Simulated scan of single mutants.
Amino acid sequence: MTFTEQLRQEAEPIFEAIMEHPFVRGIANGDVPKGAVTHYVKADFEYLNAFMHLYGIAVSKCHDRDDIEFFTQNIDFVLNSEVHPHHNLCEYIGIPYEQLQGYPLPPNADYYIKHMKHHAHEGNLGEILAALLPCPWTYLEIGNRLMEEVNPDTNHPFYTWITFYADTSMSNTTINLRERLDTWAEGASEREKEHMKEAFIKSCQLEWAFWEMSYNEQTWDLIPRASVASS
């Protein structure tokens, strides 16, 4: 069993919780609260900006030109391709994409980005790979699961979103990240592998937390306004 196979096995309960999250089930059913979708797009736009920065940090730690090319291509993929599912969500809520950009990160998204930046700055390339991998891997599995369950046609409101994440481009990104992480793990110490495992599992947990944050429209205003007014 490869290192990433071991990680995926350990993260199985988290992956399954993501699959059963009401936001993901809503995508499958074609019915997600529009406020939740708006909150998701605002946060994910900023999250993907940070994801590109993390790929840039990974480039700075590469010694192999093939790795540099890989991370550079992934920046291009996020920048120019991953806007398509965002546009699909914006069509669903009837709000132009440009109006949902530049908002502060909600707490869970802020924590997720800082978690990945910690491993990017403090850890080695293996830790960066481990922290980045759950994002494309969970989305790939969501896309594949929904294609099997729903088999959407073009009339499905989230047809573009589902087919994008079930596409070979997302599969190739996940496979390549896994292969690089498996290769890195072969020469890593047990301590280094523990750090990589920690980075991966926490990113999986924060993937679930991102869906939860979006569905509940989480904000920094954690004290209910009614309680403040009555005090």
Rank of each mutant, 00 (worst) to 15 (best):
I95P: 02
I95S: 04
I95F: 06
I95E: 10
I95V: 14
P96C: 12
P96K: 07
Y97H: 12
E98G: 04
E98V: 12
E98L: 07
L100E: 02
L100M: 11
Q101I: 14
Q101Y: 14
Q101L: 12
G102I: 13
Y103G: 02
Y103T: 07
P104V: 10
P104Q: 11
L105T: 11
L105G: 06
P106H: 06
P106C: 09
P106I: 01
P106D: 07
P107N: 04
P107Y: 03
P107S: 05
N108M: 13
N108K: 14
A109E: 10
D110P: 00
D110Y: 14
Y111V: 09
Y111Q: 07
Y111I: 11
Y111N: 04
Y112I: 03
Y112F: 15
Y112P: 03
I113T: 00
K114Q: 15
K114E: 14
K114I: 05
H115R: 04
H115V: 00
M116N: 11
M116L: 12
K117A: 10
H118Y: 15
H119S: 02
H119L: 01
A120H: 06
H121W: 07
E122K: 13
E122W: 03
E122P: 01
E122I: 03
E122D: 07
G123P: 00
G123Q: 01
G123T: 01
N124T: 08
N124R: 09
G126E: 04
G126V: 08
I128L: 04
I128W: 04
L129R: 04
L129G: 03
L129C: 02
L129A: 02
A131L: 06
L132A: 10
L133E: 03
L133N: 04
L133P: 01
P134E: 07
C135E: 07
C135M: 08
P136Q: 13
P136G: 13
P136E: 12
W137F: 08
T138M: 13
T138R: 02
L140I: 05
I142L: 12
I142V: 15
G143C: 08
G143Y: 03
G143N: 07
N144C: 09
N144V: 15
R145M: 10
R145A: 14
L146K: 00
M147A: 01
M147F: 00
M147Y: 00
E148P: 00
E148G: 06
V150D: 06
V150A: 05
V150E: 11
N151V: 02
N151D: 14
P152R: 08
P152W: 09
P152C: 09
D153S: 13
T154P: 00
T154K: 14
N155G: 10
N155M: 09
H156C: 01
H156L: 02
P157E: 00
F158A: 10
F158P: 08
F158V: 08
Y159P: 01
Y159G: 01
Y159M: 01
T160Q: 15
W161N: 09
W161F: 15
I162M: 07
I162C: 07
T163F: 00
A166C: 14
A166L: 11
A166D: 14
D167Q: 04
D167N: 12
T168A: 14
T168Q: 13
S169Q: 10
S169G: 03
